[in-house]
Design a protein around this nucleic acid. Sequence first.
DNA 1: GTGCTGACACAGG
DNA 2: ACCTGTGCCAGCA
Length: 118
Amino acid sequence: MSSERTELAELVLDVADQVPPGRVTTYGLVAEAVRGATGHGHPRHVGTVMASYGGEVPWWRVVRADGTLPRQLRERALERYLAEGTPLTPLVPVRVDLERAVWDAPTQWRLPLADPRA
DNA sequence: GTGCTGACACAGG
DNA sequence: ACCTGTGCCAGCA
């Protein structure tokens, strides 16, 4: 079945949409989850998808590996974090406290793997 | 088909 | 804390 967006994009958006409020996941983890389901997917692709369709999902819950976001989005995301109580580091620059807020998609939300028993 | 771009990750300086 | 280079690969001109 053909999809307007790519299959990859659909999965990325799906994962992003599953992240609970107050928690976040990373581009790498999303890519890992998608990769488990499709065999394809890298952090770079996740970023590309988010840039195109991020508006449809809670984009601020997908952060970089060190808990930061792109400059342009940093301020806007900070508002969201304060609003939903996302754990932030007390140090500057403010970034998400991944140790407490990370939501491991591959573990918390099992994607339909090609071979569940593998 | 060819080449550049990118909401990345990681290592260095 | 910042910027640069490298590896990665789908999407687009």
